[in-house]
């Protein structure tokens, strides 16, 4: 299987997983009438104060709820571009393409710093 076809397949699986998690999350919240100690009204509202800062990962994963599934879905989705760049890097390593190894490694480094290190420093 060609690289492009493999990458396309990984992205397809990732998107399906992410959307399934989000769909399950919404369904669970509607069925259970809320999640993680919050009512539907406070969760599904334009001006809600529930967000990724007020409802932390620790809160979301302390018990299984619709929010746990949605948070997982967002994380899977956000990881797909990172995986794409990582896949490109491995392809260039396999081809010993030094210029593009340096380029894709720089992009991957920028992404990882922005996703993990900067939020940690801001916290």
């Amino acid at each position: 299987m060609a690289f492009e076809d493999k990458l396309s397949m990984i992205l397809t699986i990732g998107i399906l997983t992410s959307s399934a998690l989000m769909l399950i999350g919404i369904a669970a919240i509607l069925i259970q009438g809320g999640a993680a100690g919050h009512s539907i009204k406070s969760l599904i509202a334009a001006n809600t104060t529930v967000n990724t800062r007020t409802l932390t990962l620790q809160d979301a994963f302390s018990g299984l709820s619709g929010i746990t599934a949605i948070y997982l879905g967002i994380m899977v989705l956000a990881s797909l571009p990172v995986l794409t760049v990582a896949a490109l890097l491995t392809r260039y390593i396999g081809r010993k393409d030094n210029l593009f190894i340096a380029i894709s490694a720089t992009v991957l480094f920028d992404m990882l710093v922005a996703i993990f290190l900067i939020p940690y420093l801001l916290h």
Partner: peptide, 26 residues
């Protein structure tokens, strides 16, 4: 790739609301 780069800072600052994101993404 660009959007994923900003997502960590958006998450930490609380600009992400899960019940707005999930239906829009679907």
């Amino acid at each position: 790739v660009t959007a994923a780069t900003s997502s960590g800072i958006y998450w930490e600052r609380g600009f992400l609301q899960p019940l707005l994101i999930a239906p829009v993404v679907l």
